[in-house]
Amino acid sequence: MMTALRLLPVILLLSAAPLAAQTPQLAPDWAYPDTPTHHQVAPPPDFHRQPTTEMKSIGAFDGQTDVGSAVVPGSSSYDPATRSYRITSAGYNVWYTRDEFRYLWKKMSGDVSLAADIAYPDPNGYGDRKAVLVIRQSLDDDSKEAVAALHGAGMIHIAWRSDPGVRVKDMEYRIGSRGGLPGGKSPDSLVPAIAKRIGIEKHGDEFQLYVSLFGEPMHAWGAPITLHLDGPFYVGIGFCAHLPDKLDTAILSNVVVENRAGKVR
């Protein structure tokens, strides 16, 4: 007579994902850029981080600040031989009602001319990353400001925040032979050639964007915007990776920063 055998079930406990893939997000969910399953939105109205400032001069600038204190600290260096600033930063955006970016600045009053050549060493960075020329009232993340920017994908814009905590408005320029270009992109065939140099001029309460598309002399681009800033205010250059927890780098060179209008070149 054969003895019956009872087969006990073997239970395998499988985790929903490998442990390495369960690393928690460093930044809030709203701060991450658009993907097929996620849309970046404005931060909550009461969300702010205090700036992190190094009172250490660098080139023409008197201080360096992580405006909005991104979850990964930024850094900057200056090469006097090439007169170039290397700015490394994370940061979800310079947009909406608050900003996160690495900012090299000096205090000024009155009229200002500010310009720079811009290059991105990593060709694979996020397309909406922004090298910026910024004139702002304070170092707070929601400060009044005027911003000229060159995006990684080639778009140029001039933007402004009219009061603390107010959402940014802007005028955007996508360079190409036909309209309807999506998102922040300029045509791939033109991106290597266009807008290597941008500038912004403050003349009283008017701020004018300047552009050199193909190496020609700088010229005014689009209409000026109007914004009142009380002196002294902050004037400088910066960079935002558009990734809240990952660093990227921009190089800004041949920088003009003068305490008078009419000197963008």
Results as ranks from 00 to 15, higher is better:
188 D>W: 01
111 D>T: 02
78 Y>M: 08
188 D>V: 13
244 P>V: 06
171 M>Y: 10
151 H>F: 04
154 G>V: 00
38 H>T: 08
43 P>K: 03
143 S>I: 04
84 S>Y: 12
219 H>R: 12
141 D>I: 07
101 F>K: 11
66 D>V: 13
144 K>A: 08
150 L>N: 04
69 S>N: 09
260 R>H: 02
250 A>W: 04
210 Y>P: 00
261 A>D: 10
115 A>F: 00
167 R>M: 11
30 W>M: 03
156 I>T: 14
221 W>I: 01
227 L>F: 11
244 P>C: 05
237 I>M: 10
192 P>G: 10
92 Y>D: 11
208 Q>P: 06
137 Q>V: 11
122 D>N: 15
46 D>K: 06
125 G>W: 00
234 Y>M: 03
206 E>T: 13
238 G>Y: 13
20 A>I: 06
180 G>R: 02
52 T>W: 07
175 I>H: 15
257 V>N: 01
265 R>H: 15
243 L>I: 12
228 H>S: 13
208 Q>H: 03
169 K>T: 06
24 P>A: 13
189 S>Q: 12
64 Q>F: 13
97 T>G: 08
159 A>H: 01
207 F>W: 11
35 T>N: 04
256 V>G: 05
106 K>V: 10
172 E>L: 10
76 S>E: 14
55 M>E: 06
120 Y>E: 11
186 S>A: 15
112 V>A: 01
123 P>A: 05
204 G>H: 11
53 T>I: 12
91 G>W: 07
40 Q>K: 14
137 Q>A: 13
250 A>S: 12
61 F>I: 07
37 T>F: 10
199 G>P: 00
256 V>I: 14
210 Y>H: 03
108 M>V: 09
216 E>W: 08
50 Q>I: 14
174 R>D: 04
163 D>M: 13
48 H>L: 14
74 G>Y: 11
174 R>N: 09
70 A>T: 08
186 S>V: 10
152 G>Y: 11
130 K>Y: 00
81 A>Q: 14
163 D>P: 00
19 L>N: 10
57 S>D: 15
210 Y>G: 01
26 L>Q: 11
222 G>D: 03
195 A>F: 01
139 L>Q: 05
232 P>W: 05
219 H>A: 15
178 R>D: 07
97 T>N: 15
4 A>N: 14
154 G>C: 08
80 P>D: 07
23 T>M: 07
157 H>E: 10
214 F>N: 04
160 W>F: 12
82 T>L: 09
81 A>I: 12
260 R>Y: 00
213 L>Y: 12
246 K>A: 14
64 Q>Y: 14
203 H>C: 02
254 N>V: 00
35 T>Q: 02
265 R>G: 04
108 M>F: 04
14 L>E: 13
122 D>Y: 00
229 L>N: 09
53 T>W: 12
166 V>L: 07
